[in-house]
């Protein structure tokens, strides 16, 4: 896998939460670079700050201190709407519990992020969705609702949804936590395949040993710092 220039750069990222009367320093000065096309895992125990870091990388949370650039874009200077736009265009999310909309079928779930991309024509949108679903091997299940699918299939749908916008970065928070071993392997294979094919940067939060062994890069986090 060819690794290109730094896609994302974090410098001295700090984040503190207030829990009742207690202040918890979730991140204590994170410095991190992610490169285009990387297939990396963010590894840490529960409470290490990996989810917080993932959320900051996904612009769905803001650090208290530090800088965050994506390409040549200073992400922290963007407004909320600009961040939303950035997420929609450049970042894809895959969640542990899939987060599919139960009233929509597969096609419609994958279509969701494209609904707010007004620059795409209907034809372009349709082609992208079909391609995305085909890439995850679910083209025979277009009109199935999520509750008719297995866990693995649902996660594939979530992956297709994350990729349909052609993002630069995919962030996955424990994507295999709710899957059995066999399915986990299949999902990981799929993700690797997509990484190769689409040259998308993947970063996972995981403490799944099976997944850790298959990534190019392991980023370990402990007590809010990268070790």
């Amino acid at each position: 896998m060819i690794v290109f220039m730094a896609l994302i750069e974090l410098k001295n990222i700090k984040k503190t939460y207030t829990l009742g009367e207690t202040q918890i320093q979730a991140l204590r000065g994170i410095n991190l670079q992610l490169h285009e096309g990387e297939f990396a895992a963010l590894i840490g125990t529960s409470g290490s700050g990996k989810s917080t870091l993932l959320h900051i990388l996904g612009t769905i949370d803001d650090p208290d201190e530090g800088s965050f650039t994506m390409g040549d874009q200073n992400v922290l200077s963007l407004s909320e709407n600009e961040k939303s736009y950035l997420r929609n265009k450049k970042i894809g999310f895959i969640f542990q519990s899939f987060h599919l909309v139960p009233v929509l079928n597969i096609y419609e779930n994958v279509e969701l992020p494209l609904l707010i991309q007004s620059h795409l024509s209907k034809k372009e949108r349709h082609e992208r969705i079909l391609q995305s679903i085909e890439n995850v091997g679910l083209k025979d299940f277009l009109h199935h609702p999520p509750n008719k699918l297995s866990g693995g299939q649902r996660q594939r749908v979530a992956i297709a949804r994350a990729l349909v916008t052609h993002p630069s970065l995919i962030l996955a928070d424990e994507p295999t936590a709710n899957l059995d071993s066999a399915t986990t392997h299949k999902i990981v294979d799929l993700l690797m395949e997509l990484n190769t094919m689409m040259k998308v940067t993947f970063l996972f939060c995981t403490h799944d040993e099976k997944l850790m062994s298959r990534v190019q890069r392991q980023i370990r986090i402990q007590d809010g710092v990268i070790i």
């Binding site: 769905i60 939303s84 997420r87 929609n88 265009k89 999310f93 987060h99 992020p113 707010i116």
Partner: peptide, 16 residues
């Protein structure tokens, strides 16, 4: 509320 979070993650603004 979870779904709202998901939509936000997908890039939907508060207005949308």
């Amino acid at each position: 509320s979870k779904e709202i979070g998901t939509f936000r993650a997908l890039g939907f603004t508060n207005n949308q």
